[in-house]
């Protein structure tokens, strides 16, 4: 708290110049995406003749095309479901385990910790076929719910790593407090500890939700492209394949796919940095 007010104190010299230069840089940086926006409003022949020019008139036709062709509302819901279910599971499993492993200081718990975070080093492509095999045996394939469950296993390692680091900064006397009250350890965790972990929880949610929203290969393999249970990324990708020559519709499709994630980020932006301070850095 104190630190924040201190930081707000003094503007550096030339602050305005820095803002201007950085704004210019940011515009250049985002220019590829600005081009996507511009071209999503053009007709096909306009794109072919000049990519940089502004559209001669604004029309939303490309968007309504992409919207219906991608079956957007359906897929939006599917993707949201996977993301929510996957993220919720990861937060739950990782917070409990991260807390427990951080507090127990035995050789055994160190080993469990290593086993839990080792997957951060394992490239996905090296085990994806066997993973699909296992998922199939557990009846988790071809289902949005099943995909959500698989994400628990894939998402926990990094999240657990982040919780594990952060828990070290939470004073242990609160643990005792909770147990003296006589409630079950799990309840104590949810009532006392989990709220204290809120900053890192926000980062964990953001990192996992962004990844699950954007993931491609796992949904492709697990849902195997069935129309009913598709996610937005799969649809976008198929859309490029099917309408590869029609840049104008594809650009609109790109925007429809990335906008929800951008809004989600902007809403949570303030918390993300706080969470990073808490989570990653002290890890």
């Amino acid at each position: 708290m104190n630190r924040r007010t201190l930081r707000g104190g003094r503007r550096p010299r030339g602050a305005l110049a820095i803002t201007l230069v950085m704004t210019a840089l940011a515009l250049i940086y985002l220019y590829p995406l600005i081009l996507v926006v511009i071209n999503s409003l053009k007709t096909f022949s306009e794109i072919m003749s000049n990519v940089v020019a502004l559209p001669s008139r604004l029309n939303g036709e490309n968007f309504s095309n992409a919207f219906t062709l991608m079956r957007y509302p359906n897929l939006f819901l599917n993707t949201l479901l996977v993301t929510c279910m996957g993220t919720a599971g990861v937060v739950l499993l990782a917070s409990i385990a991260g807390f427990k492993l951080s507090r127990t200081r035995t050789r055994y718990s160190w080993l469990v910790f290593l086993v839990c975070v080792a997957p951060m080093m394992i490239p996905f492509h090296s085990f994806m076929i066997s993973l699909v095999k296992i998922a199939r045996n557990l009846h988790l394939t071809n289902s949005i719910w099943g995909l959500g469950v698989i994400y628990w296993g894939l998402g926990v390692p990094l999240s657990l790593f982040m919780y594990h680091g952060f828990v070290k900064t939470v004073p242990t006397d609160l643990d005792d407090c909770a147990s003296i009250d006589g409630c079950s350890p799990l309840r104590a965790f949810f009532q006392v500890i989990l709220p204290l972990l809120q900053p890192v929880t926000v980062s964990v949610i953001v990192i996992n939700a962004m990844w699950m929203w954007n993931d491609f290969l796992l949904p492709l393999l697990v849902l195997s492209g069935a129309k009913k249970s598709m996610t937005l990324q799969l649809a976008a990708y198929n859309f490029f394949g099917q309408y590869k020559i029609e840049w104008q519709n594809a650009m609109a499709g790109v925007l429809l796919t990335i906008t929800p994630a951008i809004i989600f980020y902007l809403v949570l932006q303030r918390h993300i940095i706080k969470g990073m301070v808490a989570g990653a850095v002290k890890g």
Partner: peptide, 13 residues
Amino acid sequence: ALVAILLFVEIPF
């Protein structure tokens, strides 16, 4: 957590 990791990452690996 351990079961999820073993099942979906480490056993397949």
